[in-house]
């Protein structure tokens, strides 16, 4: 049975997919995942998920983001002149806020 492995560097970070392990059950999967995916990298937490429990839709079957031009939605469209600094500051603030939300 295949278990997908998700590793979190440090508290508050997202768990990121880092590979998989073969294991007969959850306990063994966690045990193998520790050694295989967390021994050489700084790790705060590991998730294992049965591969079958993951649902997928890919680019072949979906038009991700639609088919018409929506580039106006990118904040960088407005990233010009004096306004740019303000936008950049705002973006930094939001990134900071998001990080703090995660860590609290």
């Amino acid at each position: 049975m295949i278990w997908e492995v998700f590793r979190q560097d440090k508290k508050g970070d997202y768990h990121q997919h880092c590979g998989n392990v073969h294991a007969p059950d959850r306990e063994m999967a966690l045990m193998f995942a520790q050694i295989q995916h967390a021994r050489r990298k700084p790790t705060n937490s590991i998730w294992v998920v049965p591969k079958d429990e993951i649902s997928e839709v890919d680019a072949e079957h979906a038009k991700f983001g639609g088919t018409t031009d929506k580039s106006y939605r990118w904040a960088m469209t407005f990233n010009v002149g004096a306004v740019a600094e303000e936008v950049a500051d705002s973006e930094t603030e939001q990134v900071e806020a998001e990080k703090n939300r995660g860590e609290s």
Partner: peptide, 9 residues
């Protein structure tokens, strides 16, 4: 392969 890596570690 998993048990191989574990025992090697």
């Amino acid at each position: 392969i998993e048990s191989d890596i574990a025992i090697a570690n």
